[in-house]
Simulated assay, not measured.
Amino acid sequence: MKAKIFLLSLVAFFILSAHAAVVDTIHVRSDAMNKDIQTVIITPGNGKKAAPVIYLLHGYGGNAKTWIGLKPNLPEIADQYGIMFVCPDGKNSWYWDSPVDPSYRYETFVSKELVNYIDANYPTLKDRKGRAITGLSMGGHGAMWISFRHKDIFGAAGSTSGGVDIRPFPNNWNMSDRLGKESENQEVWDNHTVINQVDRLQNGDLALIFDCGYSDFFFEVNNDFHKKLLKYKIDHDFIVRPGAHNGEYWSNSIDYQILFFKKFFDKRNTK
């Protein structure tokens, strides 16, 4: 009897293992920057079934492994929802194509080179209806920046604790290395902040969600971003809750965003 139970348990283990999410760390070529970019890919264990993709962007000082470190159960979430997660290393780029440093072309990398690579090499839903992008802090800025400018690629976008208006922080986080000094390049800074990209949107262009903790130094710029979206009559989810600019907050907040994107994928892909 014990041997039978053991055998059944072993069979169950191998069945579950055969359908468990796979975590790969690869390097994706960027011709635009003439280098390879480390990327963590979490593929749900659903065989060859095409999966929607959430692109997760890290914050300042982070790397491709930031999100799997903050949220070790991402593989289980991938399996639960049948969603692929793609986490590229964006350096401290703010995900711009820098106008002053041609070695930083991360908007091009994420929106074109990375998406094309993932779609060519993995079973994905190869349509904006099956792609979302979000990120934390610098990555929240990057996700909104890229999605607003590439609505043909992404159907949904988010930001958690995002730096959605960079201008109140002219001396922080290497932004001047990417854009030049704010005091000498005001127009460039105005043109490279997310809040000034809102006029690119028509209502319904993107499914939008963003959040910020009350104790976060980015709380006011997120509130201003919310107000501007309201002014332009752009539907969006804006969530505020207790919390600061830290991993504890992001590990919690991303759960809500993943659920939001899951509902977006389900709604769009049943039409």
Rank of each mutant, 00 (worst) to 15 (best):
D211T: 15
K231G: 10
K231Q: 15
C212G: 06
V194E: 04
K233Y: 09
E187W: 02
F217R: 14
Y214H: 14
E187P: 02
D190L: 14
F217A: 13
L230S: 11
K233A: 14
N222V: 13
L208V: 11
L208F: 04
H226Q: 11
N196C: 04
I234M: 07
V198T: 12
F210D: 02
L229D: 00
L201G: 03
R200K: 14
N203Y: 09
D211K: 05
I209K: 07
L201M: 04
F219P: 00
H192W: 04
V198S: 05
I234D: 02
Y214V: 05
E184M: 13
D205H: 07
F219R: 07
A207D: 10
S183G: 03
K227D: 14
S183A: 15
D211G: 09
G213I: 01
F217V: 14
H192F: 11
V198E: 02
E187Y: 04
T193C: 10
I209E: 05
D216I: 09
H226K: 12
W189V: 00
T193H: 10
R200N: 06
I209L: 07
Y232S: 12
K233G: 01
F225Y: 11
H226G: 00
D190G: 08
L229T: 09
L208E: 01
V198R: 04
F225Q: 03
N222R: 02
Y232V: 01
T193G: 10
R200H: 05
F210V: 08
N203G: 09
Y214N: 11
C212F: 08
L230K: 15
Y232R: 11
T193K: 08
L230A: 13
F210M: 08
C212N: 11
F219E: 06
F210Q: 05
D211P: 06
N185L: 05
C212M: 08
E184Y: 09
N196W: 02
V194D: 05
Q202K: 15
K231N: 13
Y214C: 03
F217L: 14
Q202E: 14
K228V: 07
V221W: 02
Q186S: 06
N222P: 12
D216H: 02
N191W: 00
H192T: 07
G213Y: 00
Y232F: 12
Y214F: 15
S183R: 11
I195A: 03
N191V: 03
R200I: 05
N223H: 12
V198C: 07
F218N: 09
Y214A: 02
D205W: 04
Q202R: 14
Y232K: 13
N223W: 05
